[in-house]
Design a protein around this nucleic acid. Sequence first.
DNA 1: TTGCTTTTGATATTCATTTTCAGTTACTGG
DNA 2: CCAGTAACTGAAAATGAATATCAAAAGCAA
Lengths: 143, 143
Amino acid sequence: MILEKKKIFNDFATSKGLRSTRQRDIILDIFLSTHQHVSVEELYLKIKFSNPGIGYATVYRTLKLFVEAGLAREILLHDGQTRYEHIVAGEHHDHLVCTGCNSIIEFEDETIEKLQNEIAARHGFMIKSHKMEMYGLCAACRQ
Amino acid sequence: MILEKKKIFNDFATSKGLRSTRQRDIILDIFLSTHQHVSVEELYLKIKFSNPGIGYATVYRTLKLFVEAGLAREILLHDGQTRYEHIVAGEHHDHLVCTGCNSIIEFEDETIEKLQNEIAARHGFMIKSHKMEMYGLCAACRQ
DNA sequence: TTGCTTTTGATATTCATTTTCAGTTACTGG
DNA sequence: CCAGTAACTGAAAATGAATATCAAAAGCAA
């Protein structure tokens, strides 16, 4: 699956006439090794650890490329930090965000997806992406 | 309905020991006269027109109070501007955002709401709020 | 390798939002 | 009604995430 994603990125790079660089390889590797919802800061620190010398701006730039390539998606929570999550082809999940401990639970619901498409169609919309977030207290924080 | 909202804010202010000020009254009035999804900038300009002298910071501060009071909700789109929308008790709507012309269509779907509650329950979550946004091209922009 | 173009890293910049702080205003007790 | 005190305001400075700039470095085609 990781190889598959690397291929997606390489194909994207080729089609765009982008060059293949050490930095982009490293950033992709590390991004793919992370869990969902990395903030740029988190990713940058992780990269810096094994590869000092890679600059902040490059991480930003490269993440934007991942979004363009369809590998990642930007998500905005309410802490002022943009996060990036992995896109898995044919799969879409949404988020339960605990406002107590900031943990995030993912879920997927086919029925909701279908309803979303119906609603979009009803309004003449052509949907490219969507997101859904539910805020509340997780089981642990309710106590 | 407007009076009702003013009462909600007054009650909130009283319970929090906040003072009643001319500025807050004006900002609430103008906020209530806006449509959905005002950015701070938009609101500030509108306020400035009839009430020069009211400062940017006060508008920011006051909008946060409206959120606390349950009158407004912050929404984050992808243009770097925080927007505020009205909360109508017992009603919840979601958004279709056109990435072509930035227009926003609102919709409401009871079935989705129900599904969300079921999902939350399944995960032991107590939901406080949620949001759903679908991005794509509206009918006009598809052409 | 040469020459050209993209990419990078450090830094400066931008822009939304928050903080600071001195002056002003609202409320409370007398 | 007045004075004291604490909250509120406005202007300006500060912050912090994200972007732009630019000289140096690196990829790529011939």
